[in-house]
Amino acid sequence: MTSTPLAGEPAFGDPRCDDFLQLNHFPARQAEPTVRAYWEALPWETREQSGWSYEQLRDGLAAFLSSADATPREQALSELKILPGHDKSGHPEKHTLCFRAGDVICIVGPTGSGKSRLLADIECMAQGDTPTGRTVLIDGCAPDPDARFSGEGKIVAQISQNMNFVMDLTVVDFLRMHAESRALEHPEEAITRVLEAAVGMAGEPFGPETPLTQLSGGQSRALMIADAAHLSPKPVVLIDEIENAGVDRLRALDLFVEKGKIVLLSTHDPLLALSGTRRLVIGNGAVQNVIEPSREERDNCRRLVELDRCLARMRERLRHGERLDEPWERMMC
């Protein structure tokens, strides 16, 4: 079916038109060349009672077809800069922050210190117009004002302890649906990569046919992380406390680093906090200090990794119904 569309009409030859008609409970096409011809060929009762008009059908179809062209492309971002604002008392903030692709930035500070505000400033790409007065620059430039005010233009993907999968689908169907929304060239490859990465991070394996809602806390978190790394177009990932989720946390960070994402991690988990490229200390609504891990901290971090492995082993043994009753020293090696 090839024909020139009428003025203002989308190309009716596009095979996705069938999906649209089916979704909206319209009868199948009979090779009509244009939307108008299709509309006019419908019995008048159908036209009358469908709740549609020709214009609505035309515009609805155009919206449906253009959604595929509007699928979010992988947003490239190599540097995120945050110019200082002021703290809660109005005193200027001292530190200019600069994050590069592959950086893992840990954010520490007591509740109410302003961690969420900093994350929110990044999320909305503040331009001196939020309560903190901070300015966010994307690769050295102010963001496109339009992008700030649209979900698709946002640069941030979020993962938090409170998030759950709510769709009643199997893992693979869900991933397929997400891949479809990205209009990827090789969706099946991407799906396999997400699955492999997720299973690698989760304590317990799960398969593509497992229903999403039956995944354990750790498995869901692992799937969210793997999906955000491989399928989300967003270049920045905000992670809010994943410490207790039962996922291999360091593997999760590595995955994001490999994919060149900027990771912002709000955490007080010693292992994660010391694993970052840098650590921001927040207090009274402003960045009070930027800590680069020292050599001693790096050494301590390695000890923490060991400790974490011991704990993971104990967890695994408990899962298999074993006792943990041998001498402490033996258990810790």
Partner: peptide
């Protein structure tokens, strides 16, 4: 805030 990032993206696409 209570659903996964992936579901948010799919939802936005369906709205689109």
């Amino acid at each position: 805030d209570i659903v996964s990032q992936a579901e948010r993206e799919v939802f936005a696409f369906r709205i689109r």
